[in-house]
Design a protein around this nucleic acid. Structure first.
Length: 509
RNA sequence: GGGCCGUUAGCUCAGUCGGUAGAGCAGCUGACUCUUAAUCAGCGGGUCGUAGGUUCGAGUCCUACACGGCCCA
């Protein structure tokens, strides 16, 4: 073999030789495996010498003359194979010598322990199941510490299969996210909720403050939008007397990418008739307890930084305006109007504790905007343990019922964990006249240039006019939830294929 | 949108003052029938992100752009 050929050409030549030997790896369709690598290792450790079959990817390879070793990985675990010329025969031995790290093989042999005690398979028969034509970024490891491997973040996201097969921690987070989603489904299914699917293509993309993606439906020669939330269609189902519904679905928001934003993400929304905020809070508590137990096996979740959070009990509950008063010194009484709030802020020289800079009230155009700013600066950092923050301003809550005693605030709460919002819930407006007024206020903001203001939705209003029972509703971003529970630094660590800009030459025509 | 940083072999990374490209792993050849970051001997491998500019000469300096990362808004 010439040294000048590419690594890929060399592997193609090995593939051709395997075929000459009558072992075309790509021709094999089926290979029974006795057990997982993890379980086989456990059996061998307990001195079992039973005959087993196993298949996996070659992740290490050590040849010593007329015998050798290779570790085979099934993705979650690995077990060492011992290959000896005397046992494999001429053809089998040549097949072993033609292996590369990255190939898939099937082996048959007995469990045993090597002289150094490592649980292994003494291989009697070797079946190539796939040739890897590419060198894989598989790191080496010793004492649990790995060398090399794939660390370039961009490559990890663009070639996620390499990340999954080579980085155990990345794999763990992504798998935990997938399990989390199915745990959520089991939770609601077990509580008598109906899982439903509602349209992704919508004429009016509502239910949230965000800019939609637009696409075109050729058959109707119609511009349509991709949904930005699930809310309005789900509430139309409540109006159809389906009293407990939920949906887990992809929504799309036409905005930038960051640690906490991906333009497409998975949203869980659930709605239950005849319940209120307290009912929703209890459901959220139960949901987190169930999910933590299923995904992590415990309600005490431990994070990489050593902190632990308990999801077994009742969450802390605080009222937003009370917390702002307590933490910023701005009296609740001054938060009744934008003018009074600006005066109060001006008198007190309220300082952002994180930056040391004064809060400039003049930058805010609405009372709601100012209150949310104070929430972000003063309250959010204090919300480490699971906490519900109750009572949000009306301008930013166009679908939530008004507070009976304070029409500038709404019956809405958000759940926080480790300073980050994990859910958003309210007592849904079921007064069609109130809802129409809210939409009209939103249209006013839209006219002033707020592209994220909520559009009018006449079909939704018609459903409300037909009668919607009192209803509690809640939305939870599955990706952010997975991020928080797995301790990931960025959303992209819990999305298999995060949105990336195309590399040069990769863009579609 | 702004600032900073990164982009060199399949992977992880060096590269000094501007002088024609380096290591480990992976690969190839050989030795080795219990290794495990196997070992030992030898060998090959580069559009230095892209495009310009300065210079006798650019991985290195300058400009623009692309992609990514971090921070800020």
């Amino acid at each position: 073999m010439s040294d000048e050929r590419s690594l890929r050409d060399i592997r193609l030549a090995k593939l051709a030789r395997m075929r000459e030997l009558g072992h075309d790896p790509y021709a094999v369709e089926r290979f029974e495996r006795s057990d997982s690598a993890e379980n086989l290792v456990a059996k061998a450790e307990s001195e079992s010498t039973e005959s087993v079959m196993f298949a996996g990817r070659v992740v290490s390879y050590r040849l010593m003359g007329k015998a050798g070793f290779a570790h085979l990985s099934d993705g979650d675990g690995k077990i060492q194979g011992y290959f000896k010329k005397d046992d494999l025969g001429e053809v089998g031995w040549e097949l072993y010598q033609l292996l590369d790290i990255g190939d898939h093989v099937g082996v048959e042999g007995e469990l045993f322990r090597t002289r150094t005690g490592e649980p292994s398979i003494h291989v009697r028969r070797l079946t190539p199941l796939s040739k890897s034509l590419q060198t894989l970024p598989l790191g080496k490891e010793k004492d649990g510490e790995s060398w090399y491997g794939l660390t370039d973040t961009e490559q990890r996201y663009r070639h996620r299969h390499l990340d999954l097969l080579s980085n155990a921690e990345a794999r763990r987070k992504l798998v935990a996210r997938a399990k989390l989603t199915s745990a959520v489904r089991r939770f609601f299914d077990g509580r008598g909720y109906l899982e439903v699917e509602t349209p992704l293509l919508q004429l009016v993309a509502g239910g949230a403050a965000a800019r939609p993606f637009t696409t075109h439906y050729n058959a109707y020669d119609l511009d349509v939008k991709l949904r930005i939330s699930l809310e309005l269609y789900l509430k139309r189902l409540i109006c159809g007397d389906l009293p407990k519904v939920y949906e887990i679905g992809r929504v799309f928001r036409n905005e930038g990418v960051s640690n906490r934003h991906n333009p497409e993400f998975s949203l869980l929304e659930f709605y239950e008739a005849y319940t209120d905020l307290e009912g929703m809070m209890e459901t959220v508590e139960d949901l987190f307890r169930a999910v933590a137990t299923e995904v992590f096996g415990t309600t005490v979740v431990r994070f990489d930084d050593g902190t632990e959070l308990e999801f077994g009990g009742r969450w802390r509950r605080v009222v937003l305006l009370d917390e702002i008063e307590r933490l910023s010194g701005v009296p609740k009484a001054a938060l009744g109007s934008l003018e009074a709030a600006k005066v109060a802020l001006g008198e007190r020289e309220v300082v952002n504790p994180a930056t040391g800079k004064r809060i400039v009230a003049e930058e805010e155009h609405t009372l709601g905007g100012l209150i949310e700013k104070l929430l972000e600066v003063f309250v959010e950092p204090t919300l480490q343990e699971p906490t519900f923050v109750i009572g949000y301003p009306i301008e930013t809550s166009p679908l939530a019922k008004k507070e009976p005693g304070n029409p500038k605030m709404t019956r809405r709460f958000e759940g926080y964990i480790r300073g980050r919002e994990v859910c958003n819930a309210f007592s849904e407006i079921n007064d069609p006249v109130d809802q129409r007024e809210r939409f009209e206020q939103q249209l006013g903001q839209r006219a002033k240039g707020d592209e994220e203001a909520h559009p009018m939705d006449e079909e939704f209003l018609y459903a409300l006019e037909c009668g919607m029972p009192p209803t509690g509703g809640c939305g939870i971003g599955i990706d952010r939830l997975a991020m928080i529970l797995t301790g990931a630094d960025t959303l992209r660590e819990v999305i298999f294929f995060p949105t990336m800009k195309p590399e040069k030459g990769e863009a579609a025509e």
